[in-house]
Design a protein around this nucleic acid. Structure first.
Length: 218
DNA sequence: ACCCAGGGTCATA
DNA sequence: TATGACCATGGG
């Protein structure tokens, strides 16, 4: 039987009660959010922080700054975040697109679907990175699906789990009224829960999600 | 020493 | 369409 529409909200409420507001995305500007979204691909956030700190240290946390930086230098600064050669190329791709599109102000005028297609046209920006940017930089009501979300929601019985990205995202979004604040907190809470609770407390003792823990890979 | 991380692209069948 | 290889550092 199909879970009730409110059930997913109940999961959110449990996580929110336990962990409180997460204040995502960590970053001081929309552009920093976008850079972080690219750098955090399959990478722990603590590594990304070091790479971003390097950019700040060299005063290159801007589209113009990154474009003006030699790729091998950029790659060196990105080294702590892993995949540094690929990410140097991806960041440059992104920044060229960003500037040519007119920057944040011009992009903000696009409707969400148009903006998503534009983001996905950048080599190195896939569905999750695009949705991170849509939600956390442009504040659009888009539910970000990552590996944790896929595991958690399938284990709870809300989804099958093997759906392609957009199908899964739409299935989840159908269960809510569009709400940037809710989508923001929900994704952040799922990641936080997987990272902090289930790693620090491996047996999930006292964990409200118990065997549905999104961090468990098996 | 091994496993995994806030994915995405590309080549191949 | 659907797998598989590849990218690479750092923390547990």
């Amino acid at each position: 039987m199909k879970p009730a529409r409110t059930s997913l909200l109940a999961v959110f409420n449990v996580l929110f009660d336990v962990h409180g507001p997460q204040h995502w995305w960590p970053g001081d500007s929309p552009f920093e959010v976008m850079v972080g979204a690219v750098l955090t691909q399959n990478t722990a956030w603590t590594n990304v922080e070091q790479a971003i700190a390097n950019l700040v240290r060299h005063d290159r946390l801007s589209a113009a700054g990154i474009i003006a930086t030699r790729k091998d230098h950029l790659a060196n600064w990105l080294r702590p975040s892993g995949y540094f050669n690929i990410k140097a190329a991806r960041l440059k791709n992104f920044c060229h697109w960003y500037v040519e599109a007119g920057g944040f102000t011009a992009l903000s005028r696009l409707d969400t679907e148009t903006l998503r297609v534009a983001l996905l046209s950048v080599n190195g920006v896939g569905p999750e990175t695009a949705d991170d940017i849509l939600l956390y930089a442009f504040e659009r009501p888009v539910f970000v699906i990552d590996a944790y979300t896929r595991r958690l929601f399938s284990r709870l019985g809300f989804i099958a789990g093997d759906e392609v990205y957009d199908e899964l995202r739409l299935a989840v979004e159908e269960r809510f009224d569009p709400d940037v604040g809710l989508y923001n907190e929900f994704h952040a809470l799922i990641v936080h829960h997987a990272k902090i609770v289930c790693r620090v407390r491996p047996r999930c003792g006292g964990c409200p999600l118990r065997t549905h823990c999104p961090a468990a890979t098996t």
